[in-house]
Amino acid sequence: DNLVIALHSYEPSHDGDLGFEKGEQLRILEQSGEWWKAQSLTTGQEGFIPFNFVAKA
Score class of each variant (00 low, 15 high):
residue 10 Y to P: 01
residue 45 Q to F: 09
residue 1 D to L: 10
residue 47 G to N: 00
residue 44 G to S: 05
residue 42 T to N: 09
residue 30 E to L: 08
residue 45 Q to C: 09
residue 7 L to V: 08
residue 49 I to W: 02
residue 33 G to P: 03
residue 42 T to R: 15
residue 49 I to K: 00
residue 28 I to F: 00
residue 14 H to G: 13
residue 53 F to M: 11
residue 27 R to I: 13
residue 56 K to F: 15
residue 54 V to G: 02
residue 29 L to Y: 04
residue 2 N to M: 14
residue 13 S to W: 10
residue 12 P to M: 06
residue 31 Q to F: 13
residue 17 D to G: 13
residue 43 T to S: 10
residue 40 S to M: 02
residue 9 S to R: 12
residue 6 A to Q: 02
residue 11 E to F: 14
residue 56 K to N: 11
residue 46 E to P: 03
residue 8 H to M: 14
residue 38 A to N: 00
residue 12 P to R: 06
residue 3 L to K: 05
residue 18 L to A: 01
residue 15 D to A: 13
residue 31 Q to K: 12
residue 35 W to K: 13
residue 11 E to I: 15
residue 36 W to F: 08
residue 44 G to W: 07
residue 32 S to A: 11
residue 2 N to R: 09
residue 45 Q to H: 10
residue 41 L to V: 10
residue 37 K to N: 04
residue 35 W to L: 09
residue 30 E to H: 08
residue 1 D to W: 13
residue 4 V to L: 05
residue 57 A to L: 15
residue 41 L to T: 08
residue 31 Q to A: 14
residue 43 T to D: 04
residue 35 W to N: 06
residue 31 Q to C: 15
residue 25 Q to L: 15
residue 54 V to Q: 02
residue 15 D to Y: 12
residue 2 N to G: 09
residue 10 Y to N: 02
residue 10 Y to W: 11
residue 28 I to V: 10
residue 19 G to M: 07
residue 23 G to C: 08
residue 29 L to S: 02
residue 45 Q to R: 14
residue 32 S to L: 12
residue 29 L to G: 02
residue 28 I to L: 10
residue 21 E to V: 14
residue 41 L to Y: 05
residue 42 T to L: 13
residue 21 E to H: 13
residue 11 E to M: 14
residue 27 R to E: 05
residue 32 S to P: 03
residue 53 F to L: 13
residue 26 L to N: 01
residue 28 I to W: 03
residue 14 H to Y: 07
residue 22 K to W: 04
residue 11 E to T: 14
residue 48 F to D: 04
residue 21 E to L: 12
residue 30 E to D: 11
residue 2 N to K: 09
residue 24 E to Q: 07
residue 37 K to W: 15
residue 41 L to Q: 05
residue 6 A to K: 01
residue 47 G to M: 03
residue 31 Q to S: 12
residue 38 A to E: 00
residue 43 T to Q: 01
residue 48 F to K: 08
residue 47 G to P: 00
residue 45 Q to K: 15
residue 16 G to V: 06
residue 14 H to P: 02
residue 14 H to E: 08
residue 42 T to K: 14
residue 9 S to D: 11
residue 29 L to K: 04
residue 42 T to H: 10
residue 51 F to I: 09
